[in-house]
């Protein structure tokens, strides 16, 4: 899985991953994002671009929830370009109620 991490603004982080967010690489994705947030100190705005995510499994959902909890304590998280299929997955587990999806 390709993961693109880009800081933006004063304290924002833009993340764009490509591929499946599943058993194979969801954990890797989450770890990488969290490490970047910790390293760069004071990230209070996180944007996850789902444009190139073809599939999200429960493992991916767990990572999204973890990141949301992490950001909720000192900032905000937004999801972008979420496909219909993936949105359905979010809806199924009720994540759509708290996730900010643009």
């Amino acid at each position: 899985m390709e993961i693109e991490l880009k800081p933006f603004g004063v304290s924002g982080l833009y993340v764009k991953a490509t591929g499946r967010m599943d058993l194979d690489n969801a954990v890797e994705f989450g770890t990488k994002v969290k490490e970047t947030i910790e390293d760069s100190e004071g990230v209070d705005e996180l944007i996850l671009d789902f444009a190139n995510i073809t599939f999200i499994s429960s493992f991916g959902l767990k990572v999204v929830l973890e990141l949301h909890k992490e950001m909720a304590s000192h900032g905000s998280m937004k999801l972008r370009n979420v496909s219909e299929t993936i949105l359905k997955s979010f809806q199924m587990v009720g994540f759509d109620k708290f996730l900010v999806i643009e």
Partner: peptide, 17 residues
């Protein structure tokens, strides 16, 4: 699944889905 994100547990999601 109606709980707020702070109270949501990470486990059990998969089989539920």
């Amino acid at each position: 699944i109606t709980l707020s994100p702070e109270d949501r547990q990470l486990g059990g999601l998969g089989i539920f889905m």
